[in-house]
Design a binder for these strands. Structure first.
Length: 196
DNA sequence: CCCTGATTCGC
DNA sequence: GCGAATCAGG
């Protein structure tokens, strides 16, 4: 596959939306995430920030990279050195789309085998909000569609057909997606043992 | 281990 | 220009 206009377009769009390189690669098909990233760089839109910013996983790395290759697979040539990078102040990036802060609380029929919802009053509002968001965009997969990589967070009442599993990509290792991990695994904070 | 993006460099 | 390999961080 080559980078046709349309494909580049999709790339730009998705990258602008904050999609990950791998996601974009999957979407486009025929390319790996490396290809996507490489293209992104060549297009000059490496960082999605731009405004004065604070790039979390980008900036501070730009420097010399003294490799000590134990695998002389390629002759370590000294490539042209990039002098000083000019932090262009371009603002061609599309404005982020803040979701409406709908505090829509959905009353769940409270089955029994509901996920470990630790007294839903001490969960950080942040996490809850996030979960609510997620449940809107969840893939809503069935039991049999669960895989090692799908969030296994159940939603709805198992007794009704209004039941499904989140199905989003799991956070890594964990059984839930990031959002659900947030409410499922509450750190042991705010749980002060006021007893006694 | 999974994932991310960043960089290098042979092609 | 392209992207695999690699690096570096979470």
């Amino acid at each position: 596959m080559s980078w046709t206009d349309e494909r580049v377009d999709v790339l730009k769009k998705m990258w602008g939306e904050g999609q990950s390189a791998s996601q974009i690669a999957k979407e486009l098909g025929g390319v790996t995430r490396n290809a996507v990233i490489g293209k992104v760089h060549r297009l000059g839109l490496s960082n999605r920030a731009g405004s004065g910013g604070a790039a979390k996983t980008a900036a501070p790395k730009a420097a010399a990279k003294p490799k000590a290759p134990a695998k002389p697979k390629a002759a370590p040539k000294k490539a042209a050195k990039e002098e000083i990078q000019e932090p262009r102040t371009e603002s061609a990036s599309p404005p982020p789309q803040p979701k409406l802060p709908h505090a829509r609380r959905q009353i769940i029929p409270a089955g029994q085998p509901l996920p470990p919802q630790p007294s839903a009053n001490e969960i950080s509002p942040e996490a809850l909000a996030k979960v609510n968001e997620v449940e809107k965009t969840a893939k809503k997969i069935s039991l049999m569609e669960l895989t090692e990589k799908t969030c296994k967070w159940p939603v709805g009442d198992p007794a009704t057909d209004q039941f499904w599993f989140c199905g989003l990509n799991v956070q890594q290792g964990k059984p839930y997606c990031e959002a659900h991990v947030g409410v499922a695994f509450q750190p042991m904070s705010s749980r002060r043992d006021r007893r006694r």
